[in-house]
Amino acid sequence: MCTGKCTLCIAIALYPLVLLSIICNILLFFPDWDIKYAKKGYLTTEVNYMGGFIGGGLLMFFSIGFAAVGAAGAVYSFIVALLGLFNGPLCKDKSGTWKTPFKDSHDSYLNDYKTWALCEEPTNVVQFNMGLFLALMVTSCLQGLLCASQMINGLFGCLCGTSNEEKD
């Protein structure tokens, strides 16, 4: 087993996932593709936690040297995305009030698309948040698996040594 080549493969696989996490987190700041919601502070609370940017992005870059940090970042990104998905978006309802209408609901809004009409502004914010938070969850799972593989690879490298010899 060549742990050096395995490390390189894991690092290469992490880069697009890091970029996807950062992009998803940035896009969450622009529901309805408009900056006015970010300017006025009308964003879902979990967007401000920046799980995709910090956990799936910055901490994941550190994982190349510290796989445990990357795994922790993946867990953080996953939890924030899960909370964002579970609580639902911050939106303006029919009465003109900005709130998170699905947060304390006993029923899940995810399967009941008729309740999505509770959010009038930003347009299609439920689908927007769902798509990006789900993308962050999938990305963080893949990142967590890659970081766990890197930790196992590092353990084998420590116990068995690395095989960096080149063949002629």
Results as ranks from 00 to 15, higher is better:
I23K: 03
G144W: 06
T162V: 13
A13E: 07
E166A: 09
W116M: 06
G70Y: 03
D107S: 11
I26L: 13
L159K: 09
L43E: 08
C24Q: 08
I54L: 09
S140V: 00
F78G: 01
C141I: 15
I12C: 12
L83D: 05
N164T: 07
D112V: 11
S95W: 07
Y76N: 03
Q127S: 04
T3I: 12
I23W: 08
N111G: 10
I22R: 00
K40N: 11
G65L: 07
D34H: 13
A135E: 01
I152A: 14
C160F: 07
I64F: 14
P16A: 00
V75D: 05
L58N: 05
E166C: 09
F29D: 12
G88W: 00
G131K: 13
M50L: 15
I26M: 09
Q143M: 05
E46N: 10
A148Y: 12
L58E: 02
L159T: 10
K39D: 07
D32T: 03
L27R: 06
A72F: 13
P16F: 04
L43A: 04
A67G: 14
A71K: 09
F128K: 03
I35R: 09
M130G: 07
A81N: 06
G56W: 00
S105L: 07
V126M: 02
D107W: 02
N129E: 12
A117G: 08
P122T: 01
F133N: 14
C2W: 00
C24P: 01
G157A: 15
A72N: 01
N129H: 14
L20E: 03
L17N: 08
C6Q: 13
A74Y: 08
K5N: 11
P31F: 06
T123D: 13
S63R: 00
A148L: 13
T162I: 05
N48C: 09
F86W: 14
W116R: 03
E121P: 11
L110N: 04
E166Y: 06
G55L: 02
G65A: 11
S21T: 09
L155D: 04
Y109L: 05
V18W: 01
S21I: 02
T162E: 09
G57E: 05
G51F: 01
A13Y: 04
L58M: 09
